[in-house]
Design a protein around this nucleic acid. Structure first.
Length: 773
RNA sequence: UGCCCCUUGGUGUAAUUGGCAACACGCCUGACUCUGGAUCAGGAGAGUCCUGGUUCGAACCCAGGAGGGGCAACCA
């Protein structure tokens, strides 16, 4: 209630678009697409986890940014693992995350008809056949990663026979596994997925949604591209492990009679330190009782994070911090925690809660008296930082102060370590929102344990702490509650679920990861006391327990008579405190993720065999470039220069084309080579000419003329440009004079740019050096 | 061992597409503070996996290598 409205807009990256957004922007710019359609395709066989939120923020983010749309589509093609309960949970999570799919919620199972028709089309076109090998045989025939497969004896059945068999498969005439429908591609392909992939299998199972309408079910590689095509998806974003599936995806898109031509792009999935991110493993934790359920606050699931008190905005901010790329990643928990604190800091009310109480008697406070202190829910900096539109931050509550209070056990030390900011004998501290107190006496039991303190309220001149000349020396501020007014509560302190950064690493067997479970991932504190102001707050309310961390009341177990709080995240710990060990921190302080060095061994053989190959040798390796080189030389070009251009500069201009598809030939290349060798153009100019040739052909001489690329080596002509560049960058010039010689490249580059690549860089460099040196 | 992908401070991501290696988290200093929080100011830390090549100039282009990941379910 007192929480602020959702933080406004996540930054729009102006310069550094991630590679997928760059592709999308390009497709829009070139007119390949006029609007963008993405999709998030969960399989309803488990709960969403934080890894999925990366895909969700990406797909829905792109849709929002481009004014397109993003579909939610359940990829429910496997009747054996899927369930409506998961569908409901997923929809709930997606809604909660704030992803807007509008009307666009779909089910792959609704497309079974179309998929079937497409399959018959493939059969008729000779692109698919019914195979009657059994599962074992199919595996054998597939070959291995190093050996090609062999054609199935059923591969050449006639179209009629295939059609008949496939129809009878569908009609339920055969038992499970009797036949499969396979794409006819290439049993010898180096890509295993292209070795006649299975498209349909017989499974007499009832589907949670389609019921018993089908006894054949399509497989992912076949179904997914069809689903995308049907929905008009333009960019089908998935994780890296589907990279090798892409050729198959494209094959289906191309051979199936559907309009849509979606494009699959892969990016790296999220891995978080100290947790696992596979639905299978998370399911195992749930089933085997390692956690209380999918929504256990220790789980990296959306439901778990939500129950723990994490907001949807924090999850989105976290994902925005990460970016999108193709490098396998393993993200530090610290980043998630930062995003959570950053989000909660301005929206969580501050309240006082004592986890492990130590009784304190305030000797000069009268017995039976209660002083009700006025205490704001938010600190001044949060109130001041908030914009004028934000309301609720000025709210206050009454804090009861009585003769007997409770403070945190950790906030008292008989013999304080160096730099201890809290209470110890004879020391004065401030009670948060209350008076200063001094510890006058310590009561101990027979065992020597401290059981109670006697403190006296000290005169407070109102000035802050140590400022007044004769003011008492205040060590710090501690939190407290009134023993008579405080409410008992249960507080659950969560720590990382696993003891090692990567529980999956080096685990033998499927269950190996469980060996790394952190036995102390949950600590239940039962004797805690909290100030009475929270008594009537609804479950799920979020707070900052001052000096302890962010907490929320548990949405399932907390009730008015029985308050239960979950620790969402601790407060960031300052250095001094870190060194001495924090309050209530469950686990050990070992934060440093240990990862084996990436490049332990230096390259064994050193420089490899012999000297590096020359451009000429390299050009000759490939028949196409070899021919181009030979022809170019025949046209009168110097071989070394020609080879250099062909090997080092041409690939960039090819853009996926073969050399033969270039709109120019050996004659033009030879002319370019000669121009370069004669010094008519610089190598910068040559690159530009080559680029133009590759784009639209033409004659090098004409291009040089038209673009004015003739190299300028005349110092008199160049000097004004050099002067201009130096004049525009006085600070850099000073740095250069100061010894930062690396800036030479900067100056030369600027001149080159200003001269449109015409300047002779060697002359320019000399000029710059003379002028500044 | 065949094919595909990846490699930039401790972590994650950028770099005007060949021209000053930047941002965020984390870390360190200091200021401020009735939260050892927040905020503010400053700092350290990589020369871009390696070795060569092309170029006036390479994180970016070329060659060779190294390391990491993926692919041989009738899962997705």
């Amino acid at each position: 209630m007192t929480e602020q409205p959702e933080s406004t807009e996540s930054r729009a990256p102006a310069a550094g678009l991630d590679f997928i957004r760059a592709i999308v922007a390009d497709d829009l710019r070139t007119g390949k697409h006029t609007s963008i359609v993405t999709r998030f395709p969960p399989e309803p066989n488990g709960f969403l986890h934080i890894g999925h939120t990366k895909a969700i923020t990406l797909n829905f983010g792109i849709a929002r940014e481009t004014g397109g749309r993003c579909h939610l589509r359940f990829d429910d093609t496997n009747p054996e693992t899927e369930d409506v309960a998961y569908v409901e949970a997923i929809i709930n999570d997606i809604r909660w995350l704030g992803a807007e799919f509008g009307e666009h919620a779909y089910f792959a199972s609704d497309y079974f008809d179309t998929m079937y028709k497409c399959a018959e089309h493939l059969v008729r076109g000779g692109n698919a056949y019914v195979d009657s090998l059994d599962e074992e045989e199919i595996r054998e025939y597939r070959g291995t990663v190093t050996e090609p497969g062999r054609d199935s004896p059923y591969r050449d059945r006639s179209v009629e026979e295939n059609l008949d068999l496939f129809r009878r498969m569908r009609a339920g005439e055969f038992p499970d596994g009797a036949h499969v429908l396979r794409g006819r591609i290439d049993m010898a392909s180096p890509n295993m997925l292209l070795r006649d992939p299975i498209l349909y299998r017989i499974r007499h199972a009832s589907h949670y949604r389609a019921g018993d309408a089908w006894c054949i079910y399509p497989l992912y590689d076949y179904a997914h591209p069809i689903e995308d095509a049907i929905e008009g998806v333009t960019h089908s974003l998935c994780s890296l492990e589907f990279e090798t599936n892409r050729p198959l995806y494209d094959w289906v898109v191309e051979n199936v009679p559907l309009e849509g031509k979606p494009r699959q792009i892969e990016f790296a999935r999220l891995n978080l330190d100290y947790t696992v991110m596979s639905k299978r493993k998370l399911l195992q934790l749930v089933k085997e009782g390692s956690v209380s359920g999918w929504d256990d606050p220790r789980m990296p699931t959306v439901a778990g994070l939500r129950r723990r008190g994490v907001t949807a905005e924090a999850i989105r901010a976290f994902n925005d911090m990460l970016g999108i790329a193709k490098t396998d990643i393993r993200v530090d928990m610290g980043k998630l925690e930062y995003a959570i604190r950053d989000d909660l800091n301005p929206r969580a009310r501050r309240v006082l809660c004592v986890l492990r109480p130590l009784p304190v008697q305030l000797t000069n406070v009268p017995d039976g008296a209660t002083e009700w202190l006025d205490a704001p829910f938010f600190p001044h900096d949060v109130r001041e930082a908030a914009g004028p539109g934000v309301t609720g931050l000025d709210a206050t509550r009454k804090l009861p102060l009585t003769r007997r209070i409770l403070i945190e056990r950790d906030d008292f030390q008989l013999t304080p370590p160096r730099g201890y900011h809290r209470l110890s004998p004879g020391v004065i501290v401030r009670l948060r929102h209350g008076p200063l107190i001094r510890c006058d006496d310590v009561l101990r039991n027979a065992a020597g344990d401290v059981v109670e303190l006697r403190c006296s309220v000290q005169p407070d001149d109102g000035a802050s702490g140590a400022s007044g000349a004769s003011a008492p020396k205040v060590k710090g501020t501690i939190h407290w509650v009134s023993e008579t007014h405080a409410l008992p509560c249960e507080v659950r302190l969560y720590d990382r679920l696993f003891l090692v950064p990567d529980p999956d690493a080096g685990t033998d067997g499927a269950t190996g990861f469980k060996a790394h479970l952190n036995p102390a991932s949950l600590e239940v504190v039962t004797g805690a006391r909290i100030e009475p102001a929270v008594a009537d707050d609804p479950p799920g309310s979020r707070y900052q327990f001052e000096r302890l961390g962010f907490f929320c009341s548990d949405s399932v177990d907390s009730a008015p008579g029985h308050l239960v709080f979950n620790r969402t995240v601790t407060l960031r710990e300052a250095r001094a405190r870190k060194a001495e060990g924090a309050i209530g921190r469950g686990g050990d302080g070992a934060n440093r993720a240990t990862r084996p060095p990436r490049d332990a061994a230096p390259s064994s053989g050193g420089a490899g065999r012999g000297v590096a190959a020359s451009p000429v040798e390299i050009a000759r390796r490939d028949p196409a470039t070899a021919a181009l080189l030979a022809d170019t030389v025949a046209e009168g070009a110097a071989e070394a220069t020609a080879a250099n251009l062909i090997v080092n500069e041409l690939p960039r201009e090819l853009g996926g084309r073969g050399v033969a598809e270039l709109p120019f030939g050996a004659r033009e290349l030879a002319e370019l080579v000669t121009l370069l060798d004669q010094g008519v153009i610089s190598s910068t100019g040559a690159r530009e000419v080559l680029s133009e040739l590759a784009a639209s052909g033409g004659s090098p001489g004409a291009i040089v003329q038209a673009r004015g690329l003739r190299q300028v080596s005349d110092e008199h002509a160049l000097r004004p440009i050099v002067e201009a560049v130096i004049g525009e960058n006085p600070a850099k010039a000073d740095e250069y004079r100061g010894g930062r010689s690396g800036l030479l490249g900067f100056f030369v580059g600027q001149v080159m740019r200003k001269s449109n690549g015409k300047a002779n860089p060697e002359v320019v460099a000399r000029l710059v050096q003379n002028r500044l040196g």
